[in-house]
Design a binder for these strands. Structure first.
Length: 645
RNA sequence: GCCACUGUGGCUUAGGGGUAUAGCGUCGCCUUGGUAAGGCGAAGGUCGGGGGUUCAAUUCCCCCCAGUGGCUCCA
């Protein structure tokens, strides 16, 4: 007899040879909600045969671990349907991912109509309720089974030893190379939906074969699927492209060019408020501002390494009578020249050079998206020139600056990422392996000392050095980099950066930190808009106060209230038009003013205002002076909460 | 750049081989009003651009352009 320990804490006895599924069904019934189980910590199928004492813990379909199994199995189901409809299609890989799964096939591109057909076929297989059977084979057998699929053979070559063997899962007449675990049968996969297609490359490398990727999602229950669909609908309401249009924050015009947004007056207010905040902050931290040209000669970008390593990211050259010019994709080369413009002493360090301006990057057209990904990047950029001893301090104060900024804007959900180079793709980077190792170790140590939690990611470094990126998720779940702090070990050599040290010796160990704690203004405003759903904190709201009159006879008092507010630099609009109060409120909600002031007979008579909040809450009869004091305080403090109603 | 999809008045949208819906918004008139659609009326569109098929194209086909999702890339 086997001794099986279940989560109830009791020891159960079963005959040897019993399966996991039989135990789960025995202990929890047919409707246990389990899709697989943890057997002494290892994920196993229900069909797993037990021959030793162990712990068993069911993996429920409504848990994250259970959903991963469902998604993985659903990917198999997708592949089964695809190869049945398109016999020439070759399945490659099909993993579960956050919120769903995908499967990549070598096949002709498919469209929406094809997806419907595939979904239909998948439902047929769900109704047929095929069992997913695990088969263990030696390598030779597996190679025979997948002989016609070079991708599977390659996976075996890459991942599995030449003579180890592995497993495959069979459902109906479909079989896939896979480690599992999987749900017991296809009926578990009922609540799925195919969500889209994409082109993808084998192993994610654009020099490899192009594949067709099909995305889907899958849940244990109908309610979960519906809930997810509802979440996606809700997220769409936050989309900065939608709100940006509604609030007239920016426009993109074909005549100007894609990826080249125009900041409309309301967006410009957001942008300049952010910039003003940054200027104040950086004055405090000891930054000096400069302005440099948007273009420069080829020689500069040769020296910086941009042309050898970053040419694809730059706009094509302009031929002039005195040479070839390029639009700048980064400010750093010019700042290096500012540094090198005069002899520097150790007393000058750290030297912090800041610039508010725009750089232009030739981003691939297919990647452009609203303000999130553009070709004109407005930045609050700076470069810090310092000694090795000062690096930790400077990186630390920038990490803090980022955290403080985010707190001020109400951002809480972000993560740090240490972005490293990829030694396999040296052509993308300045190829000095020992310097990479040194600076990556240094940056990692600094982050550890700061006690900041971070992940590491290979191949995400800048071409000149490793960086700390701060990652966000958009409303629709796509991850993007926001702020960045980068370590540059190459600039000193390329631009001959040095300083006189305490002993009067020339020291050329100048390290450069590139940093943009507020991302680009474009991306930052996109996140800000999605985060607040356009309901910005008062201090950055394009319209801070919208005054609405009850009738035309209140226009004079409304005008008086407006000018009193304007005296205090509050951004205020007046609607004294001949329209109903309800209609005016409805109209102005779209622009999301921080506060609406309703003004009628009562207010005009006793010098008060009625304050209406965005959520409809109301405070009536507030003395005008009290409102002015409150709103100016809220603005001055850059408060992220609206507190006057 | 690559794959798929989409493109109809300022905005949201119906339609689909016989030059086109509706709502919001705009304008005018009525209404003088108290908190998310008061009433009536009017203006506004070469159906993204260019070719082709057809007696006839906004609709079908091809090529561009732009947008959306994804891949690659990246702030």
């Amino acid at each position: 007899m086997l001794k099986i320990s279940l989560p109830d804490g009791l020891l159960h006895e079963y005959a040897s040879g019993i399966t996991v599924g039989e135990i789960v069904r025995n202990a929890y019934g047919k409707k246990s909600g389990a899709v697989a189980a943890l057997v002494s910590g290892e994920e196993r199928d229900f069909s797993y045969v037990l021959e030793q004492d162990c712990d068993i813990e069911p993996i429920l379909g409504e848990t994250e671990a259970g959903r991963y199994i469902l998604r993985h199995s659903c990917a198999h189901l997708l592949a089964q349907a695809v190869v049945e409809i398109y016999p020439e299609a070759q399945p490659t890989i099909g993993p579960p991912i956050e919120n769903g799964f995908y499967y990549d096939f070598k096949m002709d591109p498919v469209g929406d109509e094809d997806l419907k057909k595939i979904e239909k076929k998948m439902h047929e297989h769900i109704r047929a309720n095929h069992t997913l059977t695990r088969e263990e084979h030696d390598n030779e057998t597996l190679r025979g089974m997948f002989a016609k699929n070079p991708f599977k053979i390659e996976i075996m070559n890459d991942k599995i030893g030449m003579d180890v063997g592995s497993s495959a899962y069979r459902q109906g007449n479909f079989v896939d190379l896979c480690l599992g675990p999987h749900v017991p049968s296809t009926s578990y996969l009922r609540w799925f939906k195919l969500t889209g297609t994409s082109q993808a490359y084998w192993k994610g490398d654009s020099s490899n074969e192009s594949l067709v990727r099909i995305y889907g999602m899958c849940f244990y229950s109908k309610d979960e699927l519906r809930e997810r669909e509802r979440q996606i609908e809700e997220a769409k309401k936050r989309d900065h492209k939608k709100i940006g249009k509604e609030m007239e924050l920016y426009m993109i015009d074909e005549m100007i060019g894609k990826g080249l947004p125009v900041w409309l007056p309301n967006g410009e207010i957001l942008k300049s408020e952010i910039e003003r905040f940054a200027i104040e902050t950086e004055e405090h931290y000891g930054y000096q501002r400069v302005t440099t040209p948007v273009l420069a000669k080829r020689q500069l970008f040769e020296a910086s390494g941009h042309l050898p390593h970053y040419a694809d990211g730059m706009y094509p050259p302009m031929e002039m009578d005195d040479g070839t010019y390029y639009l700048k994709a980064m400010n750093c080369p010019m700042h290096h020249l500012v540094y090198a413009n005069k002899k520097r002493s150790y007393r000058d360090l750290p030297l912090r050079i800041a610039e508010y301006g725009t750089v232009y990057r030739n981003e691939l057209s297919g990647t452009l998206a609203g303000l999130l990904r553009v070709r004109m990047l407005s930045m609050n950029d700076a470069h810090i020139y310092c000694t090795i001893d000062q690096v930790a301090q400077e990186v630390g104060s920038n990490v803090k600056m980022v955290q403080d900024y985010y707190a001020a804007f109400g951002f809480e959900d972000y993560s740090f990422r240490l972005s490293l180079w990829d030694p396999e793709r040296t052509e993308k980077y300045i190829d000095q392996p020992e310097n990479w190792k040194k600076s990556e170790d240094r940056l990692r140590q600094i982050m550890d000392d700061l006690g900041v939690v971070y992940t590491e990611s290979v191949g995400e470094a800048a071409f000149y050095g490793p960086k700390v990126d701060i990652q966000f998720k958009t409303a629709l779940g796509r991850e993007e980099s926001m702020s960045t702090i980068q370590l540059d070990f190459a600039a000193k050599e390329r631009f001959g950066l040095s300083y006189m040290d305490e002993n009067g010796n020339q020291n050329d160990e100048v390290l450069v930190i590139h940093r943009a704690p507020l991302s680009t203004h474009e991306r930052f405003v996109a996140f800000l808009t999605e985060h607040w759903m356009g309901n910005f904190p008062t201090w950055i709201s394009p319209t801070q106060v919208q005054i609405i009159t009850i009738s035309e006879r209140h226009a004079d008092y409304a005008g008086e209230v407006a000018s009193r507010l304007r005296e205090h630099k509050v951004r205020v609009e007046v609607d004294d038009s001949d329209s109903t109060i309800g209609r005016k409120i409805r109209t102005h909600r779209k622009m999301r003013p921080a506060y609406m002031l309703i003004i009628g007979d009562g207010e005009a008579a006793d010098g008060t205002v009625s304050i209406r909040a965005r959520n409809g809450d109301q405070r009536n009869g507030v003395p005008l002076e009290d409102f002015i004091a409150g709103v100016t305080k809220e603005i001055k403090n850059r408060s992220s909460k609206l507190s006057l109603v």
